[in-house]
Design a protein around this nucleic acid. Sequence first.
DNA 1: TATGAATGAGTGTTCATTCAT
DNA 2: TATGAATGAACACTCATTCAT
Lengths: 196, 196, 196, 196
Amino acid sequence: MPRTPSENERIRRATTEQILKTAMTLFCEKGYYSTSIDDVAKQAQISKGLLYHYFKGKEDLLAALVDLRINDVLVVMNAAVAKTTPSEQIQHIIEGALEDVSRQPEVFRFYLNLFTQPRLDPVVAKYSQKLMDEQARQFEIQTDMFVRLGVAEPRQRSLYFSSTLQGIMLMFSTYPNSFPLEKLKAQAIAEFCNNK
Amino acid sequence: MPRTPSENERIRRATTEQILKTAMTLFCEKGYYSTSIDDVAKQAQISKGLLYHYFKGKEDLLAALVDLRINDVLVVMNAAVAKTTPSEQIQHIIEGALEDVSRQPEVFRFYLNLFTQPRLDPVVAKYSQKLMDEQARQFEIQTDMFVRLGVAEPRQRSLYFSSTLQGIMLMFSTYPNSFPLEKLKAQAIAEFCNNK
Amino acid sequence: MPRTPSENERIRRATTEQILKTAMTLFCEKGYYSTSIDDVAKQAQISKGLLYHYFKGKEDLLAALVDLRINDVLVVMNAAVAKTTPSEQIQHIIEGALEDVSRQPEVFRFYLNLFTQPRLDPVVAKYSQKLMDEQARQFEIQTDMFVRLGVAEPRQRSLYFSSTLQGIMLMFSTYPNSFPLEKLKAQAIAEFCNNK
Amino acid sequence: MPRTPSENERIRRATTEQILKTAMTLFCEKGYYSTSIDDVAKQAQISKGLLYHYFKGKEDLLAALVDLRINDVLVVMNAAVAKTTPSEQIQHIIEGALEDVSRQPEVFRFYLNLFTQPRLDPVVAKYSQKLMDEQARQFEIQTDMFVRLGVAEPRQRSLYFSSTLQGIMLMFSTYPNSFPLEKLKAQAIAEFCNNK
DNA sequence: TATGAATGAGTGTTCATTCAT
DNA sequence: TATGAATGAACACTCATTCAT
């Protein structure tokens, strides 16, 4: 007897998630190019054919993961925007971002790696660009916060802020075991969350 | 009669440089994995066989480029150390690093990409690690400067400094056309080059 | 619906056999080094990729063939051991070995060629050694037969027997068209199958 | 000032010998296919270009070595023919052959390997054939000795003799450290050197 | 005689993707 | 939905040989 449609739907969801989780893990461990579709299918305990049933190809896996990432960033940003004072908003950005990276440094590292991919890489550049575009969008919102904070040159301040925050994330994800994340977080909050 | 040894030496040097330059360009444009040895040989206008006469393989090309990069970093660091006051030293690090990245943002981007490579990538991880080790070495020297500068928590300050500087370089190499590098440089110098 | 596992098993078996048969033929004709994987795939009417689906590489092909050969030798030896008198046992070794070589002289020739491969050949030596080890094992069993036959110096006699038998096989596989195998077989049986 | 012609001639001879010796050593160690021209030139301490000045190519090296081998065999055979009685002649063949193989088992092994090369190997078969032809020529001479010895079926006897002798050489060159060559030599002489 | 830079065809191998069932 | 057999283009690398000097 055939499965019910809802049962099918449940299976689809579970399998999709399983594949994505496996792909994320392997991409983080070995990188996109050094991970084969065979690796993913084997580790996800499904057949290669089935994987292609769920995703159009290797690139499609990457696309899905990038969308997930962008969504994560958006969640933090939206929560920040919901705060009342610009000071709280910026603080939330710092805390959200560092919370993210501290939970899964390799994941952040993977996206950062993708982000820094050469511009003409025939496969990967598209997703690198997508991440950059999204970051640019976030940047505009964040700059508004600095405007409302009343700093002298808000755009420049916002850039400096982004640089510091990205730099902390980069350093932490590089040396996750020895980097005093909390202390640097405090320092960043002290520096950026009030109009000096 | 054979060529004189010095003539051979000249040829070797020129061809080696030509190959490395081409490899650097292509790796920056398309990335290590998406650049084939054929691409490099063709663009360098030599035969594939000759490339293997000069380098043991694709990986050896990468190794040579990483060594060049490490040397570049060392040059800046040594010049910084040669300065008299810690304030000047730190300023030199900032200026040297940003000078580097502003001259060839794609090159920095490439090394940053390598730097953020997943830890288990079978080929590339080794060179990623090498860059990380070198950075750690630089960090110790730099921390001494902050000690001599007399700041409260020099190690933490040095980390925060590195984060900011790396962050600026990351952001600039991402948006080289719209990033006001000079202004941010000034801001960084103002923040880190004297004992507040 | 996927193929049933047993159907897959059938396909695997058939294709594996097809590949091995082709490889054996080509190796016998042109030798291991002068046969390319492309040759094997083409002649076996499969794609190169599929060959690698079944065998890890060219060397693995050779390994499989060597295992087959060792098995053939074991079959003869086991049948010999099963005979009651040592005289019959030795006769069975002679007949089994010469039967083998007369059926497929080129195959024997190929294994002999492998057997005589230089000891340091980076690829092939391993299999040469494997054949030698197996022969040494057979030799011990065979020597027991001469012990039971009651000859004066059984080990030496066993060696002389092996030498003669190997020599006949070598000569026959070299000149299969003009070598009077039956006559020499009779002569060997006459010489070795009873305690003179 | 130019070298004298005779000086040049001396150099030519010495270099030729040096190359051949090196090639023989390497072919014996690693086999013809696994030895590169580069290997030979490096080990012989000359440039690749010079090697091509002395030999037309890799195949030509093999050809020269095969000629040397054939000459060695001829020397033994001629000395055998010079003996007065057929019994002494056959004894000389045994002793000469076994002396050869015992002095340099790897060299014999190499030629045996060549001898057993598949018939269609595009490069090597020609030399394999040459060795076989030469052996056939020797065989005729040797058969005459058995005729003169007065055995019943001299041709068959001669074949059986060759088989035994080749077999001993094969076995010895395979296990040079544990094979009691002298004892087997005695046994062969006892068996073949008088009209039983 | 002598060198080693230079070539390019050929080889083993990988892998994303398709297809028959 | 699910399997894994099958494909073929692409890739890194080797090596006998040639050539300019």
